[in-house]
């Protein structure tokens, strides 16, 4: 009985791992295929002759497969490199501003009682529910007038409207569960701001780190606004550069390689997130 149970558990874990990794594997495989393998029908289950050529090509390098055969650099390489740099800039700036703004905001919502708190909290939760397509047109119209369309600055401002409410919500739940150190701090003569800076922030550093990682992920993965506001301009991000591949179908292995590159940062943070994500309480603020 006991042994059968563990067998089922292992089977369950195997199914879960396959379910999770299959889509990623399928693309990893595609990125390693040669052009004729990709053209082959039916699609192979495993790469028979894996080659990293696509990864060189998308960054603008030729790849010598055999002395006679060279796989040429992708014509989109400029777009990809430019998008990668822009995505990094946008994500880092958005993360920095988000954290600067969200930590005090979440702190006062989590730890202090004041008038209008409930109404303001509901406003924040509601703005998480706002569909980007609804606000796209007004932003587009505004940006065209202000000359912000096709600029990184404009994209950063819009992306902040996504990260700030969601990350605030997450941090409120986390900060609520800290011990009541404020009273101790008041007796010790810390001012409100000192309490936040010297006591609460160091105490909450793991939660704040998770929040920062999530802000980065949201910014890195943002596509809808980028599609309308910066696609086809010098301010394009990795996401828009990638979808350029998709609709032009140049070489699937290039698309696959670029996608794998784009999910590398998320893969790196997944290990960190799985340990800490549950500390971010999404349920508490609703209760």
């Amino acid at each position: 009985m006991q042994r059968r149970m563990t067998l089922w558990a292992w089977l369950g874990i195997a199914v879960a791992v396959v379910w999770t990794l299959l889509p990623i594997y399928w693309f990893l495989k595609m990125s390693l295929l040669t052009p004729d393998e990709i053209a082959r029908f039916p699609p192979p289950l495993v790469p028979l002759d894996p080659t990293p050529a696509a990864y060189f090509n998308i960054f603008g390098f030729d790849y010598q497969v055999t002395p006679e055969l060279v796989r040429r650099a992708s014509g989109q390489a400029g777009q990809i490199i430019n998008g990668l740099i822009n995505s990094l800039i946008v994500s880092i700036v958005v993360t920095a501003i988000t954290m600067l703004v969200v930590v005090p905001l979440a702190y006062v919502f989590a730890r202090l009682d004041f008038r209008f708190k409930q109404a303001l909290l509901i406003t924040i939760l509601l703005s998480v529910a706002l569909p980007p397509v609804s606000t796209l047109i007004p932003f587009y119209a505004l940006y065209v007038q202000l000359g912000l369309a096709g600029t990184l600055f404009g994209l950063i401002v819009v992306t902040l409207t996504i990260t700030i409410p969601f990350v605030t919500w997450m941090l409120i739940g986390y900060l609520r569960n800290l011990p009541p150190v404020e009273r101790l701090a008041r007796v010790d003569g810390y001012s409100r701001l000192e309490t936040l800076v010297f006591i609460v922030i160091p105490l909450a550093r793991s939660g704040i780190a998770v929040a920062a990682v999530i802000a980065f992920l949201f910014a890195w993965n943002e596509y809808t606004y980028a599609l309308v506001l910066v696609n086809g301009t010098p301010a394009n991000t990795l996401a828009t550069a990638l979808s350029g591949f998709l609709f032009q179908h140049p070489e699937p292995s290039h698309l696959a390689a670029a996608l794998v590159v784009s999910i590398l940062p998320p893969v790196l943070v997944a290990y960190f997130l799985q340990r800490h994500i549950a500390e971010m309480n999404l349920v508490d603020p609703i209760r």
Binding site: A16, V17, T20, L21, P23, I24, W26, F27, L217, W220, N221, Y223, A239, L242, S243, L246, L255, L259, S262, I263, P266, V267, V269, A270, Y271, L273, Q274, I277
Partner: peptide, 17 residues
């Protein structure tokens, strides 16, 4: 970590895959 991965992948990336 493996189970967490999909949430970290972007939605457009998921769409392409």
């Amino acid at each position: 970590t493996i189970i967490m991965l999909p949430w970290c992948v972007s939605l457009y990336g998921t769409g392409i895959m």
